[in-house]
Design a protein around this nucleic acid. Structure first.
Lengths: 226, 226
DNA sequence: CGCTTGCTTGAGTCTGATCAATGCTCGTGG
DNA sequence: CCACGAGCATTGATCAGACTCAAGCAAGCG
């Protein structure tokens, strides 16, 4: 199917519906599962919009520890935040299709078109706010609360409600590295939630929301619930 | 001395050296120690530049837990990140002098002047990168490493080196809430560092850097050091 | 079919939280 | 000027939640 090596089709596409002015600049590029899209420290030559698949954005410490800052889902932009070099490593969680924009063009468009500018600004602000929520999770929530928050956030992002099944495009280790936990702790928290009848887990990559209300209570730290 | 109630002198000032175009818009405002400058959820009517004192930016959870996202030191801007409502509560750590800019004017200037725009963008990016570093700390560093990181970051911000004395404008509880720890753990970590001869602590609000190299090693997670 | 890869569960340990007591500093009033 | 008290900071003892290490399990694939 998809080759691990980067394949580009030079067709311009109409996926950038949020920023129509951008659409003409992008080309489609594919990455295989676990391929690196760009590395922390790389010169930020391109920005991206994710068409399909999922991407993780992480930082690595000297001793091999990893912190995932964010996941990208289809329709979302990434790689816009830095002008000179990327501050995060972006890797494909699965086979991935992106639209790639040369940064220099994006930059110029930003200077010239007010709409693009506003959109870029808005994007940055959204990311900052998400990072702030993430800080609260890592700094002040228990393991179970973090896992609940994670599920609720994911559900909101794909607009899922009670009874709906959501897909987890990332593995347990990725969730752990996002939540600042170990894989075992994440597993146990998920098992707990399963036990309590709050979720169902038909398989590794799927999750059925049974009691979104309980999850939300846990996520916001209503400590008396178990 | 400074009254707790907000006092404004309607003189325009020349403090915004980074963004000269802004300087004419600002007025000087004072806040007393522990006064709230704005609350999470408040309409973002103003942006600020800190002239003197220090400010903490925090999020509160329902159960009273608090996560501090950032501190502002003299010369720094804050309250620019949101267009509609503030996502963080800003409080004066000490008596504080700020220059206050009406957001609507900032917004307009941003539309019209490329320099201002670039500066605003840069500011947002800086904040996002700081938040990402913060995430790593909270997610993947031990208590001692976090405290070391905190000290190193502060030292860098005020451009202090070995032998220099740095001022801690915040209390221990604030440090704890920034680092996602308890006040006791922060104290113990500081005591440890004192014990190892890495820092000296002449009093609550001052700290002498004796071995910045060791602090940096700890901060970056070179696990063999103690 | 057996191997690999990733997930789950269990047992024991350890780091950091909690609870409790004491110390220090500064400002206020006798 | 000293005594007192408020507000933090520090230190100690104990506890618990999350980590580590270790084993077993399920699914996918060559």
């Amino acid at each position: 199917m998809l080759r691990p090596a980067e394949q580009s089709s030079q067709t311009s596409v109409k996926v950038a519906n949020d920023v129509p002015a951008l659409s003409k600049l992008g080309i489609v590029v594919r990455f295989g599962r676990h391929e690196t899209i760009f590395n922390q420290g790389d010169e930020a030559k391109y920005s991206y919009r994710l068409v399909s698949g999922a991407v993780r954005h992480s930082k690595f410490l000297v001793n091999g520890r990893r912190q995932i800052a964010d996941f990208s889902l289809p329709g979302e932009y990434f790689g816009f935040q830095n002008d000179c070099e990327h501050s995060l490593t972006a890797e494909a969680l699965s086979d991935v299709v992106v639209v790639r924009y040369p940064r220099s063009h994006v930059e110029r468009l930003g200077e010239e078109v007010a709409d693009v500018r506003r959109e870029l600004m808005l994007n940055l602000r959204r990311e900052l706010m998400m990072a702030q929520e993430h800080l609260v999770m890592l700094g002040r929530q228990s393991a179970k609360e973090r896992v609940a928050s994670f599920i609720v956030a994911l559900a909101n992002r794909v607009d899922a409600g009670n009874g709906d099944t959501i897909t987890l495009p990332m593995g347990r280790q990725d969730i752990a590295d996002y939540l600042g936990l170990t894989i075992e702790t994440v597993c146990r928290a998920i098992s707990d939630l399963k036990q309590c009848g709050v979720i169902k887990v038909p398989n590794r990559h799927e999750l059925v929301l049974l009691r979104l209300d309980v999850l939300e209570a846990l996520a916001s730290g209503e400590s008396d619930e178990d």
